[in-house]
Amino acid sequence: MKAGSTAVKPVGDAGSPVSPTGGRPDIEGVRRAAWRQRLSRLDTLVSPYVFVSPFFLLFVVVGMFPLAYTAWVSVHDWGLLAGRGDFAGADNYRRVLEDRYFWNALRNTISIFLLSSIPQVLIALGLAGLLDTQLRARGLWRMSVLLPFVVAPAAVALIFGNVFGDRYGLANEVVQAIGLDPIRWHVDTLASHLAIASMVNWRWTGYNALIFLAAMQAVPRDVYESAALDGAGRIRQFVSMTVPMIRPTVLFVVITSTIGGLQIFAEPRLFDTQGLGGSDRQYQTLTMYLWELGWRVRDLGMASAVAWLLFLIIIIFALVNLLVSRRAGTLRGQR
């Protein structure tokens, strides 16, 4: 009772227009309320940003800083062991763009990227569709597709290196058993790209399949029931309903695999002994080229220029991807 009355009192005071001296505390009270209101508005406005800021602060440290520092290195003469030399302007970029091995590496990167990413996304989609059905031992199947992902890339390269041996490899024994000529996996450009792409696919398909699976499980089941009533078969359901409904996830996977695909390094790097991507650099990728400049030629300036060019290329690819996927999505939606 008492507590209630004391709590009411200031409100009464503030509301009373009679007291001539009570004006001051009144204004004080209004001000305080306004302040509190402003604070709470600020709270709803700012708090979310404060809560997400650790990520961005970390991103500035481990993402933006290296990016900026690489740009700084790329406009200088900079030896791996000798350190910073003179300001060089765009000279490093010019030298990279004039180097035929840069264009060679770009071609290889795009080829390996296409050979790996496209089958990878398609197979992952199909695999996820199969895993989304009422399988026995579902957990086992779902987890086993992730197994390749946890094996270290170096170990994968080692095993596949033996499988794809030109003369004594397992793959060629199979090829010869069918009666075909052995394939020169380390020599011929396309064969080497296929071998490397298969290593990449082996590692990433299961991972992408699980991401698709997670999205597919969010698709409401009753939609399928009505489709089944309308006479749509399993495949028809998958193509016309499941895939369009998980479009944002597909977009996400396409973009992440583009970013990853353009930076393929470990698999081709470990595919030969010199580390330069074959005798004719037939499978030297851009990251390997960057590494060659930085650590073999020991020119960090040029290597940094390549890093920035690669960054720009990835942005262009991601944008093109985004546009194409959007357009494909809307077309299907309209139909």
Binding site: G139, L140, M143, S144, L147, V150
Partner: peptide, 19 residues
């Protein structure tokens, strides 16, 4: 099934740890 699943999980973790 559960046994198989957990065995696989153990294997997976072991491989990761080794890696």
């Amino acid at each position: 099934v559960r046994l198989a699943t957990s065995a696989l999980l153990a294997l997976t973790l072991a491989t990761t740890a080794a890696a």
